[in-house]
Design a binder for these strands. Sequence first.
RNA 1: GGGUGGUUAGCUCAGCUGGCUAGAGCGUCGCAUUGACAUUGCGGAGGUCAUAGGUUCAAGUCCUAUACUACCCACCA
Length: 766
Amino acid sequence: MNKTYDHKTLEKEIYVMWEKSGAFSPEGAKTLREQNGLRDSDNEFSGKPFSVLMPPPNANAPIHCGHATYSLQDILIRFKRMQGYDALYFPGTDHAGFETQYVYENKLKKEGKSRFDFDRETFFNDVLSFVNENSDIAINQLKLLGMSADWKRNTFMLDKKVVDTVYDTFIKMYKEGLIYREGYMVNYSTFYGTTFSDLETEYKDSVSPLYYVKYAIGVAPKKEGLPSYMTVATVRPETIYADVAIAVNPKDKRYKGFVGKEVINPLTNEKIPVIEDEYADIEFGTGCLKITPGHDFNDYKIGKKHGLKIISLISLDGRMNENAGETKGLFPAQARKKVVEILQEKGSIEKINDNYENRLLVDYKEGNVIEPMILPNWFINMDKLLDPVISAIEKNKVKFNLPEWKRDTLRWIKEKKPWPISRQTVFGIRIPAWYSVSENPNLQVTFLTNFKEYKTGKVSDLLKAGISLSEIKSGLQKVITTEDAKYVIQKDSPGDDFLQETDTFDTWFSSGQWPLTTTGFPDSGDFKKYYPTDFLDSGYDIMFFWIARMIMFGLYLTKEIPFKNVYFHGMVTGKDGRKMSKSKNNGVNPVEMIEKYGTDALRMGLIVGGNTEAKFSPFDEDKVRGYRNFANKIWNVGRFINQKIEESNLNIPDDLPDADLKPEELEFLKKLEILINEVTKDLDRYKFKLAGESIYDFIWNTLANDYLESIKSRDDVSAMFTLRRAFLTAIKLLHPFMPFVTEAVWQEIKKPKGESNFIIISKWPS
RNA sequence: GGGUGGUUAGCUCAGCUGGCUAGAGCGUCGCAUUGACAUUGCGGAGGUCAUAGGUUCAAGUCCUAUACUACCCACCA
């Protein structure tokens, strides 16, 4: 044995050894136990299933510190495997539709290309092969982390079994009337050409000019002395083209005489009504609010309430459309300038406040502006689907590790918002809806002609112009439908006359069914044995996106909650307690930490050094270094035992009766027994940190500093017997936390009969 | 505006069902040893547990309020 523990070589060798041994699958572990003479009949947990789902990381990206918390899942799996359970850790990776497409498009950009140069099928396949080329990145790094997942059971989010299940679920929901299609105001990013969910948008502080625009009164009010116009404050004058009303608060005495009258839209010269609505804030601006239902969420609500017309100004490519008068074809920012010029010429601008602080709606990803727009979208009516979820959570059928998680989850679910599930990305699972071209002559298609020309237009016009449907189909990029389009829902094309919906599913629609697809719903052996799973660990930031929806799908399709326990780990932050980010320069790359200190040290640093159960868990490299030293300590205790036995030529018996042991040895073993109970109990209630701390303290202080030091000069059998027994037991307890060094030492020490050759499948002490 | 967490040693944090003479790692100071391990050992300094009330035989732990701080949700035309 080397003087110091060499994590760099040994960790790699050991992982390969485990994989070869088959220990990661329950079947392989069973065989291995038998080969090692461990009888399952001795074990109360033998044959019982215990399963954990791995939250799928993106297939094509390196892991970050958040993924390193997967160690928790591995700790539990290793613990249960040693206890004798058929422990199964289901791994998988996500296609991460939007993220992946984004990365790939950036790559194209460097080559001077964009996704608009390709028909969607070609583009999809290009992205897919890009993913395939890189798909091992995440998996290999998870292996570096020591994950004892059964990789032969790996699932990829675009595997046929996943897509089939996703389609089956969608069709079932459709048949049961849970799916509907509706024009809906969505967060549309003209930059990405896709919609974002409410959860994927945020507000960004900004300073924008606030324009005070005068709207002339159409019919003069009866009272004398009233002004001949109303003034409205707005940061988006370009949307005046789509104004359909002016709202004032019913309590606002200033405008009593105006309600019910009409004003002139200063850009379109059309007459629009003055209405009353509580939403208009008397205090803000002039108290007059322009209502633009086509491009503002609140205005949309007010418009619906008052039965107002909805006018769209912006087309999907982000340019102003034919309703936008003189600004047609411009981007909104350009249109704003032009509109301001026009209004100034007309004398319609009363004043401009250049230092107005407002907040812009932007996407969470790059912070680009989001346009609220009306688009036909696919929805799930969540009303009835969420009732069983609420009741299951309220009745504690699924347990959360902390009560506040339960409260937060419930609060969100109870809003029961409809779920818009269509996304305008290419890389994803395409919605199985089909539009008949002959029945929907107004379908707008975008495609590449046989001569690779980018073309867009009404399908009926195109056909009349002599373009064949097959040409459209083979070059198809996008189908935009009207709200009343007729469609058929089924897996395969109903016939030559049909075009498939080009929208894809929200990734959470497929990952929400992850517990079903990984285990092989509805009839595989794994599904029958391992579903519902036992433990689900996740970051709390995706509890709405993911956890709530998995419970929903589980209850809907199987009447069972897909997991018995939900464990939310806190966010791993920099040592300064702030979210890791490049700009703050407080990020940590787990792979670098592994190189430097070893996987064992990293795992301990995160799980025991930090606290995964708190909302935030600061990552401290000093702690990782401390645990690297601990690994070395363990290695050297093993070395000591080996050397001592060899030097003194001792023949250590497999067992010794208590009567042959000295009182201090019995006392020491008594402490060990207490430790076993404590650790087992703590792991069973997911107190990973407490368990890890106890083992650390026992090995370093009680075992090494106290007991080992006290027997250093002795070379009798009972002292060494006791030390070896305690040490082997202690490293078994530690194995789930620090799998590599414990296995490495285990391999080096001569063990008593009845112990297996691998610590990974050794029997958990009791 | 609504909500949630945090506030304990210089730093990062434990302290789970009240029993604490308040702990750990790192840092710091002193000493020792090349003897399994310098990725070491021994020893020391360092805290009125944010503040103010309350419950209790007993409060870091439970309750109330306040302050500071972080985050989440909603949202300002």
